[in-house]
Amino acid sequence: MTDEILSFNNVTFSYTPDDVKVRNAVEDVTFSINKGEWIAIVGHNGSGKSTIAKLMSGLLFPQQGEIRIKRDVLTEENIWDIRAQMGMVFQNPDNQFVGATVQDDVAFSLENNGVPHEEMVQRVKEALQQVKMEGYINHEPHHLSGGQKQRVAIAGALAMKPQILILDEATSMLDPQGREEVLTIVQALREEIGLTVLAITHDLEEAMLADRIIFMNEGKKYAQGTPSEIFALGEALVKFGLDLPFAMKMTNLLQAHGIQLVGKHMTEEELVNDLWTSNFNK
């Protein structure tokens, strides 16, 4: 039996519900997430990804359908209890900081929720240790790198002990090093504490880390499956405004020039290994 932690059931939302000529931002979307899973929601700008994030956090409510968190229907009455089970990290880390130091920032939500001082100090310490930022506890946030800022933002979310961590384009403004720092930390947290991760992204390289991918297009769920199943759509992804992973594009290019390769490759390591075994180890 699966341990379902979040589900959308035939959810529809429109920013202009009375205008039948305007398409819905999200239309009849159904999916579920189980405890401990990493799910990526991908799609081009305007596909409905960010609206889904707002719906699941209760910033918006469906006009049709329902959203359940651990089988409880999300309503205006229980929204604060539901939000306490979610940690969110957004696109721009600079927009998330409210404290003068890293310690103050991680403690901010705990203070707002009335967590006792001694427990708050311990939670801040543990959260910073989890993201490998304990050495920066008294640093000013604006002196940190982009990757470090997002790690502190993740610590702020973890300090609340959420059931699910939502990354809303959380790596899109980072350089490659910062992006790798954040994704490595999230992967480690998932393995260490069984954290459920929902990553909303347009980056298919990042989506490859997920157990399952939900592919959105024009507010509708176009496809859902494992990374291999979604990337098998190939040019359909490009058609809908997404870029294929580098290894897949290189594989297509090499095959077009007559180089024999076995199937498609999602990672550079797979491509290099195939090149070696198929063409240089005969």
Score class of each variant (00 low, 15 high):
63 Q>T: 02
113 N>E: 06
93 P>Q: 11
68 R>L: 11
114 G>C: 08
70 K>M: 12
79 I>D: 01
70 K>G: 02
66 E>S: 11
78 N>P: 05
136 Y>G: 01
80 W>R: 12
57 S>H: 05
77 E>G: 00
75 T>W: 01
62 P>Y: 00
68 R>H: 10
74 L>K: 03
90 F>A: 03
88 M>N: 05
62 P>R: 06
116 P>E: 07
115 V>G: 04
76 E>S: 05
103 Q>F: 12
115 V>R: 07
87 G>I: 09
61 F>M: 05
62 P>T: 01
127 A>E: 10
78 N>Q: 05
117 H>N: 11
120 M>K: 15
122 Q>D: 15
113 N>C: 09
88 M>S: 04
105 D>S: 09
110 L>R: 11
121 V>I: 15
94 D>H: 07
102 V>D: 02
75 T>P: 01
78 N>G: 02
131 V>F: 06
136 Y>L: 12
97 F>Q: 01
101 T>N: 04
102 V>P: 02
92 N>C: 07
92 N>S: 10
99 G>I: 00
118 E>D: 13
74 L>H: 01
95 N>G: 05
76 E>T: 07
97 F>C: 00
130 Q>M: 15
122 Q>V: 11
58 G>V: 05
133 M>C: 14
126 E>R: 15
125 K>G: 00
101 T>R: 06
98 V>F: 04
70 K>E: 15
90 F>R: 07
66 E>F: 06
97 F>N: 03
66 E>N: 13
121 V>W: 07
125 K>T: 09
119 E>Y: 00
72 D>I: 04
69 I>N: 09
96 Q>G: 05
93 P>V: 06
130 Q>S: 15
91 Q>W: 11
70 K>S: 13
68 R>A: 08
87 G>R: 09
96 Q>F: 00
138 N>P: 03
133 M>W: 10
104 D>Y: 04
137 I>Y: 03
118 E>L: 13
95 N>M: 08
105 D>Y: 03
96 Q>A: 10
84 A>E: 05
99 G>P: 07
121 V>A: 13
114 G>M: 12
90 F>G: 04
129 Q>G: 10
131 V>S: 08
72 D>C: 02
93 P>H: 09
86 M>S: 08
124 V>G: 02
124 V>Q: 06
79 I>N: 04
102 V>K: 09
69 I>K: 09
133 M>K: 12
115 V>Y: 08
85 Q>A: 10
100 A>Q: 13
59 L>T: 08
116 P>C: 00
99 G>C: 07
